[in-house]
Computed example of a mutant assay.
Amino acid sequence: MQLQDIDKSRYRKHLNWVIGLCIVSLTAGSLGISQVLIHLFPDSDGSHFHWNLLGVLVTCAVIAAALKKVKNHPFMAEVVYVWELKQALNKITRKMPKLKKAAEQGNPNAMLAIQYSYSGSRQLWHLDDNTITMEELSLWQAELEGLAQAHNVTLDIELYDERILREF
């Protein structure tokens, strides 16, 4: 996955709409389904936990199916991009200890994966207004650049492909 420039305000606006619609759908759907089930199959004990749970589960499945169906709609482009970026960064994060050890030994693929992680994290944190750890990220970036210079490695995140993670 290649990093893309996206409009932060458009992303936030669309994300808020998606979250809002999911909340409204979950509330209305789960209550509606559970009330119909309670009406059709009343419980003499007055406990309707299983019908309420089933309403929530069915509504979650419907929402997931709807999101999957509209995933490729232009309205969802930024939201889906960020979701996929988070998945890509999680794959790298799970291998980060091995990547850092290999980078210290001069492995260019490890350095490239770490560079991609830092660049993607910077973009993600900027989009989500999470600036608390940006200073730490700058320190980590400087450390990586020092390693790359020491091992004569050029880091171009355009060359990153997640298949290189299989090596670690």
Rank of each mutant, 00 (worst) to 15 (best):
Q2W: 06
L3W: 01
I6V: 04
D7G: 06
S9C: 09
S9Y: 13
L15D: 11
V18G: 05
V18S: 07
G20R: 07
L21M: 12
L26G: 15
L26C: 09
T27N: 13
A28P: 03
A28I: 05
G29W: 01
S30C: 03
S30I: 01
S34Q: 10
S34E: 09
Q35P: 06
V36N: 01
V36Y: 08
L37C: 04
L40W: 10
F41K: 07
F41S: 12
F41D: 10
D43Y: 10
S44W: 06
G46H: 06
S47N: 15
W51M: 07
W51Q: 14
L54T: 05
L54E: 07
G55Q: 04
L57N: 06
L57K: 05
V58H: 02
A61N: 05
V62C: 10
I63V: 04
I63D: 04
A64D: 13
A66I: 04
V70A: 09
K71D: 05
N72Q: 14
H73K: 07
P74K: 07
V80N: 04
Y81F: 07
L85P: 04
K86N: 15
K86T: 10
A88P: 06
A88K: 11
T93Y: 11
T93N: 09
K95P: 00
E104S: 12
E104G: 13
Q105N: 12
Q105H: 13
N107Q: 05
N107H: 03
N107R: 02
P108Q: 05
A110R: 01
M111S: 00
A113C: 01
S117G: 09
S117F: 10
S117Y: 09
H126L: 15
N130K: 15
I132K: 15
I132D: 13
T133E: 14
E135M: 09
E135F: 09
S138K: 13
L139M: 12
L139F: 11
W140Y: 13
Q141S: 14
Q141G: 06
A142W: 03
E143V: 03
G146W: 10
G146T: 10
Q149K: 11
H151Y: 09
H151L: 08
H151A: 08
N152Q: 14
N152F: 11
V153C: 03
D156E: 15
I157V: 15
E158C: 12
L159I: 10
L159A: 15
E162Q: 11
I164V: 06
L165K: 04
F168W: 01
